Simulated scan of single mutants.
Amino acid sequence: MSLGVPQLGVPVDVWLTAPAGSGEVLEVVDGAFVTKRIGGNPHHYLAVSLLLEFERQWGAVATAPGNWAIELAPDGSVVRGRVPDVLVDGDELRTVDVYVGVPAAAVEVWSPGNTLREMNEKRGEYRAAGLPVLLEAFLSDSGDVHLDWMVNLGRHWSTVATSEGDTVLDVPARPGVHEAFSVVPNSLLRR
């Protein structure tokens, strides 16, 4: 009798078909499912607006949300899989159910229900995976959109631009890292 190779993570097809509760999404952390709550309509609208801005300004392909297999086991199962609000890269995002590799950028739209621990875990995972750009967005207490543009310096993230409300977020291109990006945060909610 031969013993099968133990599964080290979650098979991709299982991740894609596993049932999540209403208002929830399943991510994979250390080879096991973790349930994450998803935001409401302003959260989703903001994510789609940022997707459109990346596609318009960078000529890239983006998806909102995006299934990203950050770490695969030798057997191809997902050890770490996250669902950023937006993934930005190339044509592959149109054809694969789960993105494997390092995207050009990712967006996290934080909601009041996100814990600091969860935010720091994702930041650390994205940095360790080599993600060059992380754009964080949230609605401030005043209802304004707040944006933080961060670049990966290897050992930590560096916030290179921050903007809120009607003040332009203007990020110059960094050759070899990212293209230029400019947007008025509140315009993302079409106020």
Rank of each mutant, 00 (worst) to 15 (best):
residue 152 N to F: 11
residue 149 W to M: 06
residue 85 D to G: 07
residue 19 P to D: 15
residue 34 V to Q: 14
residue 66 G to A: 09
residue 107 V to S: 06
residue 7 Q to V: 15
residue 169 L to Q: 01
residue 182 S to I: 03
residue 32 A to Y: 00
residue 148 D to T: 13
residue 126 Y to N: 10
residue 175 P to G: 11
residue 35 T to H: 03
residue 79 V to E: 08
residue 89 D to A: 15
residue 9 G to E: 09
residue 137 A to I: 02
residue 159 T to S: 15
residue 95 T to R: 15
residue 7 Q to N: 05
residue 3 L to C: 01
residue 76 G to V: 01
residue 183 V to L: 11
residue 183 V to W: 12
residue 47 A to E: 11
residue 156 H to F: 12
residue 112 P to I: 03
residue 6 P to M: 04
residue 159 T to F: 01
residue 150 M to D: 03
residue 69 A to C: 03
residue 60 A to R: 11
residue 155 R to D: 14
residue 104 A to M: 12
residue 149 W to G: 05
residue 107 V to R: 06
residue 42 P to D: 11
residue 87 L to Y: 01
residue 147 L to H: 08
residue 45 Y to G: 02
residue 113 G to A: 08
residue 123 R to W: 06
residue 49 S to G: 09
residue 34 V to G: 01
residue 68 W to S: 07
residue 185 P to V: 12
residue 133 V to R: 04
residue 76 G to E: 05
residue 182 S to E: 15
residue 63 T to G: 07
residue 51 L to T: 11
residue 91 D to I: 12
residue 32 A to T: 14
residue 157 W to D: 10
residue 16 L to N: 02
residue 130 G to P: 09
residue 110 W to G: 00
residue 5 V to T: 14
residue 154 G to Q: 06
residue 32 A to C: 00
residue 10 V to M: 03
residue 142 S to T: 10
residue 78 V to R: 13
residue 88 V to W: 04
residue 149 W to C: 03
residue 80 R to D: 14
residue 178 H to E: 07
residue 4 G to E: 15
residue 57 Q to G: 11
residue 106 A to P: 01
residue 82 R to F: 12
residue 46 L to H: 13
residue 57 Q to T: 13
residue 57 Q to D: 09
residue 132 P to V: 00
residue 113 G to V: 05
residue 73 A to C: 08
residue 128 A to D: 15
residue 27 E to W: 10
residue 72 L to G: 00
residue 131 L to N: 06
residue 43 H to Y: 02
residue 176 G to E: 03
residue 131 L to Q: 03
residue 145 V to N: 06
residue 71 E to K: 13
residue 30 D to A: 14
residue 24 E to Y: 11
residue 175 P to A: 11
residue 7 Q to F: 06
residue 147 L to W: 09
residue 109 V to H: 05
residue 34 V to S: 02
residue 186 N to S: 02
residue 7 Q to C: 11
residue 93 L to N: 14
residue 13 D to F: 07
residue 139 L to M: 10
residue 74 P to M: 11
residue 11 P to D: 09
residue 166 D to M: 14
residue 153 L to H: 13
residue 177 V to M: 05
residue 103 P to C: 07
residue 184 V to G: 13
residue 25 V to F: 00
residue 141 D to L: 14
residue 64 A to K: 05
residue 149 W to R: 08
residue 155 R to M: 01
residue 10 V to F: 02
residue 120 N to P: 00
residue 129 A to N: 08
residue 108 E to C: 01
residue 138 F to N: 14
residue 106 A to M: 15
residue 98 V to C: 13
residue 167 T to F: 02
residue 76 G to A: 02
residue 128 A to I: 04
residue 112 P to H: 04
residue 98 V to Y: 05
residue 191 R to E: 12
residue 133 V to Y: 11
residue 174 R to Y: 04
residue 47 A to L: 03
residue 86 V to F: 09
residue 186 N to V: 07
residue 26 L to A: 07
residue 160 V to K: 04
residue 33 F to R: 10
residue 152 N to Q: 09
residue 6 P to F: 09
residue 8 L to F: 08
residue 11 P to I: 06
residue 55 E to R: 14
residue 187 S to D: 15
residue 58 W to K: 08
residue 84 P to R: 07
residue 21 G to E: 14
residue 101 G to I: 03
residue 190 R to G: 07
residue 156 H to G: 04
residue 71 E to G: 04
residue 140 S to T: 15
residue 53 E to T: 01
residue 36 K to I: 04
residue 172 P to A: 03
residue 25 V to K: 08
residue 64 A to V: 01
residue 7 Q to A: 13
residue 130 G to E: 06
residue 124 G to T: 04
residue 75 D to M: 09
